[in-house]
Amino acid sequence: MTIEMDKYRDATVMRLSGEIDMYSSPGLRKELLSLVAERVSPLIVDFRGVSYIDSSGIATFVEGLKGMRSFGGRLKFVAVPEGIMEIFTFSKLDRVFEIYGSADEALSG
């Protein structure tokens, strides 16, 4: 998995690609929690290049969202591939995570 940080309008964007699994999740967690500690908001996570996410990846985002909510920050997901969306829907997390089609939608939502 690779993480690229970017800026789009007033938001910070985290672009992910590859597999988010039990080997790569600790690195993602470190990055995510350091953004939470800096109170970066809104944070847009772009899933376009993500081919797979396992339960450790989902747990990492649950931890990230919990941290964001602790200071009123917003975590927004964009371009979530269908297979990953199915897993979010199954676990009902599609109604907890804010999910948008694009960064523009995320910023107006």
Binding site: M22, Y23, P26, R29, S56, A59, T60, V62, E63
Partner: peptide, 11 residues
């Protein structure tokens, strides 16, 4: 794995 305990608890 080398996951943190907080991640493991959520999993």
């Amino acid at each position: 794995t080398r996951l943190e305990e907080s991640t493991i608890q959520i999993m």
